[in-house]
Design a protein around this nucleic acid. Sequence first.
DNA 1: ACCAAATTGCGACAAATTTGCAAAACAAAA
DNA 2: TTTTGTTTTGCAAATTTGTCGCAATTTGGT
Lengths: 137, 137
Amino acid sequence: MDPYKDLKALLTKNRASLTKPRQKVFDLLMGQSPQTMQVLVKRAEGKVDRATVYRTLELFERLGIVNRLNIGWKYKYELSDIFLEHHHHFYCSNCGKSYDLPANPMLETMVDSVAAKEGFSPRGHQLEIYGHCPNCR
Amino acid sequence: MDPYKDLKALLTKNRASLTKPRQKVFDLLMGQSPQTMQVLVKRAEGKVDRATVYRTLELFERLGIVNRLNIGWKYKYELSDIFLEHHHHFYCSNCGKSYDLPANPMLETMVDSVAAKEGFSPRGHQLEIYGHCPNCR
DNA sequence: ACCAAATTGCGACAAATTTGCAAAACAAAA
DNA sequence: TTTTGTTTTGCAAATTTGTCGCAATTTGGT
Ligand SMILES: [Mn+2]
Ligand SMILES: [Mn+2]
Ligand SMILES: [Zn+2]
Ligand SMILES: [Zn+2]
């Protein structure tokens, strides 16, 4: 089966094509924790130009393929809920590591209702919890 | 009464002093919506050097005096819950405006318990909801 | 294979952020 | 208050990060 099926579909729907560079950037994100732009640019070195990495992530974000997260001291990118199970993040302010937290149906509902109650139409959200991880208490 | 009391206490506790430049940066944040680094640097112009603004915000973040938020396409800084009522943010992906959402006791509790259930010790969190605002539906 | 449109790499550039270091401000002790 | 050692600052330079135009390449469609 084609692992790029959903990606391709999303791109096509927006009159964009799944090119070699875009596939490469997608691969860099696959099965990885959130990564900074700098890391992505570095890892793409030789394969994909810096400007293209920037342009690709901008496109991916616009199409909802990736999410940009504020983790610790830098922006990080991670594949969105389409490719990854929706989840939240815990950031340990002692050791600096970040962890995935599973989504909680009850919580997800409440988040939406909090926004709806104020007259907004929520499409999604990012939740970032910080404190100490089990290793650092 | 000294409006800098809590700030001073926090700094002292960490063997740092409440200097003129730090007070100025704090003032820039007071009673304002989240601001980008660029805006803060500009507003500090003439009073506090660029490098000092950067160093101050890094310190303030480390000490939990400010929070760095991922709002729309930029980082923004705002005073943390110690100085401002705890709240969340809604970002309208149509008009780009961001709004404050009041804290919801039920939600706050659930957020903490989700982290605790996984063995983490939560100290705080940031919740960013996005979608359409009332004006943009 | 051919064409038209989309995308890329490659500078060159502009903006943002970091750094070293000497001077100034500061806290603590005398 | 003056001295003393430490922290913090401003300045200037260096580095890093992000943007842009454009010619060359790649892509999807005929
Ligand atoms: Mn994650
Ligand atoms: Mn706010
Ligand atoms: Zn930890
Ligand atoms: Zn709006």
